[in-house]
């Protein structure tokens, strides 16, 4: 899949933002006044910024309101609803903390569930796609959730939670990569099923339908070199998981914490770049590109 900056930014930052909202909601940190305002601003900038970024790839963002209508079937619609609902709930919850210095715990817990739901629905947008075997797996929501919660915890200064969650996420990520590399092959979709010609012999794409490019090729066919991928995975793992954990394990320092946050964000950006760039869509088969 084409690793569009808008979706990479969206998944990375809205993940962090909702992760942080989760910790705020459950009351892992209960700031008040100005500090609450700052915490919530960080969370909202990340969450809303991410969501806004995602609208950049829309052809008609002005019609975005329509996207709330199809919650019965569409994960994207559900995500939209969950995100807005969560943001609204947490706005009230946050207002309570900032202005009233009161924590409406029920509201917080509701917001936390909303944040989890949002993260889960985001993940399900990808995981539901049978057309992208690498994504079509429980590890996708599992990773989105652990990463968001881990990142949120890191942002929110929840050291031990962060260490635990990031370690878990790192492990999951390694597993997802290893499994993901084989999943296309195991999906049962191949040149033979795509063309139905396998009973005659070995099928090979001969001439593409157009010598130029097209939307499908731009959107779905992206090939990452093997060596390049291994390097990027190492970088992603190092920056996103190992380094933050190591920094947190060191005696606490604000500098380290800030480094850990930036390192983590950079790592997740790479993780997400790989998430898209390495995701092989079955349509590539028709172009002989799988």
């Amino acid at each position: 899949m084409h690793p569009a900056p808008s979706v990479i930014i969206f998944t990375t930052f809205s993940g962090l933002g909702f992760g942080l909202l989760f910790w705020l909601g459950v009351g892992a940190l209960v700031p008040g006044g100005l500090s609450a305002f700052i915490w919530f601003t960080i969370a909202y900038v990340a969450a809303v910024g991410g969501l806004l970024a995602s609208t950049f790839h829309l052809g008609h963002p002005e019609r975005a309101i329509k996207a709330f209508s199809q919650w019965q079937t569409s994960w994207l619609s559900r995500e939209g609803i969950a995100a807005v609902a969560t943001l609204l709930i947490m706005a009230f919850y946050g207002a309570g903390l900032v202005f009233g210095g009161t924590r409406f715990a029920a509201l917080g817990w509701l917001g936390a569930v909303g944040a989890l739901t949002t993260i889960f629905t985001t993940a399900m947008i990808y995981a539901q796609l049978r057309t992208v075997p690498r994504w079509h797996h429980w590890t996708t929501p599992a990773l989105f959730l652990t990463l968001s919660l881990g990142g949120g915890a890191l942002l929110g200064g929840q050291v031990s939670e962060t260490i635990g969650l990031l370690a878990l996420a790192g492990g999951l990520q390694l597993y997802a990569w290893a499994m993901g590399d084989k999943r296309f092959q195991r999906s049962g979709t191949d040149m033979d099923t795509a063309t139905g010609l396998g009973h005659i012999g070995k099928v090979r794409a001969f001439e593409p339908p157009h010598t130029g490019t097209n939307y499908l090729m731009r959107e779905f066919i992206h090939v990452v070199g093997r060596r390049h991928a291994v390097q990027l995975r190492a970088i992603a793992l190092g920056l996103g998981f190992v380094l933050p954990v190591v920094l947190l394990l060191l005696p606490f320092s604000h500098i380290f914490a800030v480094f850990a946050v930036f390192s983590h964000i950079a790592g997740v950006l790479v993780v997400r770049w790989l998430f898209f760039a390495q995701a092989e869509h079955v349509v590539g088969l028709y172009y002989g590109k799988r």
Binding site: M1, H57, L58, G59, H60, P61, A67, F220, Y286
Partner: peptide, 13 residues
């Protein structure tokens, strides 16, 4: 809204 998700979901391009 031109989100493109339906195209992602279609196996056939």
């Amino acid at each position: 809204i031109g989100c493109g998700l339906c195209a992602w979901a279609c196996p056939y391009g």
